[in-house]
Design a protein around this nucleic acid. Structure first.
Lengths: 193, 193
DNA sequence: GTCTATACTAAGATAGAC
DNA sequence: GTCTATCTTAGTATAGAC
C-alpha cells in the first residue's frame, strides 16, 4: 500500500476528472483514498495544494504517454497512435470528458494561478504535436497542431455532452484520414489543409 | 426598465457564462440584476430554476441568430457567416469560452436533468449545421456537422485556456477554407444557383 | 505522525414584516 | 408584491488529543 500522500493525489486525479474541481469535496477525495477527512491537512495545506498536486500527477501521466509515442519512428504514426489512444478511451470521455480539457475549462473561471498550471499541460500537448507536423515537413505546423488538439477537445466535449462514445470513434477515423492526407497529399476534397 | 424576472434571467445568463454555474452565487446574480438577494426566491423557487431559465434565454438568443442566418440563400454562406460570428466574438471567447460549451461541460458533472437541457441547445446547433451540409449535397452531412461544431468548441476552449483571441481568428479562416473546399453542385431542388 | 472533534464561513433557502 | 432578517447546511480548515 503506497503512502497516503500518493493515495490522496491519485484519488484527487480521479475525482477531479469525474466530478470536477468545484463539486469535489475533500471528504470525497479522502473517502476515495481511504484516509480520514481531517487528516488531509497533514499532507496538503489547502484544497488548492491538493488540486495542484493532482494536476502535476496528471501531467506526468501524459508525459510518459508522450514518451512512449516518441519510440515510434514516423511522426505521422506517432500522431495516429495518439488519436488511436483517444478513441480507445472513448467510454471514459463519454462519461467525464477529457481530463485536461475539463480542468482547463473549469479552472479558467478562477482568479488564482491554478488555471495557468492546467494551461501548461495543454500547451505541452500542442507543442509536441507541432514538432510532429514539423517533422513531416509542414511549415504551418503550429496551426495544424492547434487544429488537431482543438478537434480532440471539441469532440471530447460533444462525446461527453451526448454520452455517445461513437462520436469519438467517427471523428478519430476522420482525423486519421486527415493525417494521412497531410503525409501523402491526395485529392480528397475533405482535406483540411 | 424591464420586469425583475427578466432582469434576473438576463443577469444569470451573463454571470453563468463569466463565472460558471458552481461559482456563481444567487447574490452575484441578484447584484448584477439590481434586485435584493432574498427577493430572488419570489421569482424562482430554487437556484436550479433560475439556471434553467438562463439556459432557455440563451437558447432563444441562439435561435434568433440561426433564424437570421437562414435568410441567406446559399448554405455554404450560412455556415461561413456562422463562423464569421464566432471570430467576431473572439475576445469574449478568450475571456470566458463558448457559453454553450462551458454550460454543457459544467452541467454534465451533475446528476439532475439540467445537463440534458444544455445538451439540447448543443444538439440544435449540430442539427442546423447538418441541414446546411445536406443542402450542399453531402451525404456525410452528420459527420461534417459534428466535426464543425467540435472544431468550434475545441478552439473556444483553447482560445480561453491561452487567453489568445488570435487562435480563434486563425482557426476560423481555416474552417472557412474547409467549407469552400466542400462546396459541390447542390442536389437541393430549391437551390436555384 | 495520525486522527477526532470542532470552529468558521459562505451560500442556499425560508419566515414573516411591511 | 417587495424586502429584511435569519435559519440551515455543507464544506474548508484548525486545535489539540493520542
Amino acid at each position: 500500500m503506497r503512502g497516503k500522500r500518493e493515495r490522496l493525489t491519485a484519488a484527487a486525479v480521479k475525482m477531479l476528472h469525474e466530478q470536477g474541481v468545484e463539486k469535489t469535496t475533500l471528504a470525497d477525495i479522502a473517502r476515495a483514498a481511504d484516509v480520514p477527512v481531517g487528516n488531509v491537512y497533514y499532507y496538503f495545506k489547502t484544497k488548492d495544494d491538493l488540486v495542484e498536486a493532482a494536476i502535476g500527477a496528471h501531467a506526468q501521466r501524459l508525459q510518459s504517454m508522450i514518451a512512449s509515442l516518441d519510440e515510434l519512428p514516423a511522426p505521422q504514426d506517432r500522431l495516429k497512435t495518439l488519436i488511436g489512444g483517444w478513441v480507445r478511451q472513448r467510454d471514459l470521455a463519454a462519461q467525464f470528458g477529457c481530463p485536461t480539457g475539463t480542468l482547463c475549462s473549469e479552472l479558467d473561471k478562477r482568479a488564482d494561478g491554478l488555471d495557468r498550471t492546467a494551461a501548461k499541460v495543454m500547451r505541452g500537448l500542442i507543442d509536441w504535436s507541432e514538432q510532429q507536423f514539423r517533422s513531416m515537413g509542414r511549415s504551418d505546423s503550429r496551426d495544424l497542431a492547434v487544429a488537431l488538439i482543438a478537434a480532440y477537445q471539441g469532440i471530447s466535449l460533444l462525446t461527453n455532452t451526448f454520452r455517445d462514445p461513437e462520436l469519438m470513434t467517427r471523428e478519430g477515423a476522420r482525423l486519421e484520414r486527415w493525417i494521412d492526407s497531410l503525409a501523402r497529399p491526395s485529392e480528397d476534397p475533405d482535406d483540411l489543409r
